[in-house]
Design a protein around this nucleic acid. Structure first.
Lengths: 208, 208, 208, 208
DNA sequence: TCCTAAGCGAGACGGTACGTCTTGTCTTCCA
DNA sequence: TGGAAGACAAGACGTACCGTCTCGCTTAGGA
């Protein structure tokens, strides 16, 4: 049984796969079980058995779909990645009126608030690093693109573009994590404003 | 056998402990083995057995000193923490002449370069997150103190001090990781200058 | 689907079954695959999957006909049993001229030589015991009948008839197995003669 | 951990092994559990887990001593084999007065009666064949030796010695199995006498 | 001629046992 | 007494079969 292989939609066996909804259902059950368990305990401490029991799925079925616990998480993150990219695209097109630099941040904050539990799960524990690493990667790509479009005709002793990318992403992830860990009390717009101000004007304006 | 218990120097059994240098030696062997293994493979993938074999130490001896692999790492990070704090103190006193805000950064960059292998080990892989988390914590405390001394009486719509702390630490860790991952080619002073400029003046100066 | 149920020819659905030759064909394919696999590897090591693949049959089809691998073998042995019984009957009637005691042996040796591969398969490996057990059972019945017809009014300190039955069958199976394992080099008549002489006259004549 | 390796007594580490009685104890527990389970259910149906639970032993410990369930049985049979050989030697020396041909049989019958449960376990079920096969092998060797010492100067159309060996062993195993299956009601001497008479004189004396 | 029931292949699924690996505890010996 | 050696229980891992099931496809008989 090699269910795990057909990730890409080849379109040919579409009819078959529509009929066989069971596969999709099983995977969804496993993903949900995974997330709900991550909310309860450390990622490393979660057992494949636990996931299966929570999903009401046989262990062999698990391994028919995913090669390991990590594979399950990767697959989940892939979903998240697609969501985020879509959100960014939509945000960018909608932002024609607004100041378009750092256009990603508000969309991210809002997405995080909308999926608060998921983000808490991802950020928490030891395994959080991996998930956050994925998001970090996505954002890096976005920002790198944005900066590429920017005028960097600049001066002599300059700062490598990648350093700036990492700087912005690192700062953003830290602020977002702080915001989420505090329960996301402030409205997204507020945090976004704070973040953008710090990035653009530096901290001396706030703490001179 | 409960060697692990006597962490705090009680001074009484000083004579005894001087004689028994073996304990310190064994622990050092284990720590070195641990670090050298981390340089080779993922932290999670390292087994207690491997550490013991690399340290030429029996497994039961390991458990006589540490309760687990994580305990060993914690203990190692504690050393690092002490080094970093000491370095910061010394940096602060030495910096009376220099601009003292964000005084930690240059000392950190230099320390990282001086222990390049160790930092690469800490930053790499999945387990890196934990180690970096510790450093992040140390830096957060430092910056929080620094900001506390600062004048923040400022304007009406304010940015929470902790948000700024996290912002700075996140940005710093990201830049440092980028620098290290690139092989620490640039001199510490250069990266430090870049980082400080981004933090204080914002990115608009570089990428308007 | 409960194809497996209609084992006994009830005569009613005879027309239907004659028409549906597919069932018979599928079963034959499975039986052949089974035997050919047994010739290659240990019975216990053969999987249902392998049988199905060798027979070019779906797994669910297998279970539509047989409840398990053992069921398949039982069914195959039943065929064998019928053949053997038929052969014995025919041998007995044909042997009116010959010494009729132990009439089964020559027929058995000849049948074994005619189906050398099958017998090798049955006798080999661990699973051989089961198959041989079936033959042993058949022979026990034959010999028991033969002895029943015999005059056993004999002496005082008597040997239970069943002991003699088991004695003869055990000896026969051992000799036949030895003969087959050696490649059935000797002609059936020779082995038969040897066996009959040992049984009737005892070994002291040969090894006094 | 490679406990399983040191089967042969090399004499060097004798001191160590005498001290470490745990190993012997664990193995004994496993063997006993194995035998007691075989008495209850088919050998094939017994699980390593069950054996471990019955022996109050961890699964990993099992695999530290034996490579598989079969290995455990082999090891147990090896014990049996040694016992049987010893018994035969002792029987042979003691039998100077008695008719020494087929000297093995009485000793075997007595041994079987003395360990009735064990023999029932070995003979029962599907796996029995393997155990019985081992005994069959031991007896074959014994008888082959005995016949080798015998005068076979004999006539022209002769019976291969190995055929006789197999004949005797097969007959003996069958009679013994019959006797045990019936509960070993008759005294060993009686069965032995029956068996010897059948072998030496043939069945025609009993069933002419 | 179509139509309908059955044989069939494909394969997802829940289970269960496997043999391996690592962990942390404990006991025994040696220096 | 600190350390080395290593037996042991516990339990997760990923694999391999099992027997059950649901799904469409084919095909042959009766309409």
């Amino acid at each position: 049984m090699d269910i795990a292989a057909d990730m890409s939609g080849n379109g040919v066996s579409m009819a078959k796969r529509q009929i066989d909804r069971r596969v999709a259902r099983t995977r969804a059950l496993l993903q949900q079980a995974h997330v709900s368990l991550i909310l309860k305990k450390d990622y490393e401490a979660i057992t494949v058995d636990e996931i299966c029991e929570a999903a009401n799925v046989g262990r062999s079925t698990f391994y028919a779909h995913y090669t390991s616990k990590d594979d399950l998480r990767r697959s989940g993150l892939e979903h998240l990645r697609r969501q985020l990219v879509a959100r960014q695209v939509e945000a960018r097109t909608a932002a024609h009126a607004r100041d378009r630099s750092l256009g990603f941040s508000l969309a991210m904050f809002e997405h995080a608030r909308d999926h608060l539990d998921l983000y808490k799960a991802l950020a928490g524990g030891r395994g959080g690093a991996v998930a956050l690493g994925t998001i970090r990667q996505i954002l890096s790509d976005l920002i790198r693109n944005e900066l590429a479009a920017t005028n960097d005709r600049t001066s002599t002793d300059h700062i490598p573009r990648e350093a700036v990318v990492q700087y912005v992403v690192g700062a953003f992830m830290a602020v977002m994590t702080w915001w989420l860990d505090g329960g996301a009390k402030l409205p997204p717009q507020r945090v976004d404003a704070m973040f953008r101000r710090l990035v653009t004007e530096g901290i001396l304006h706030a703490f001179p």
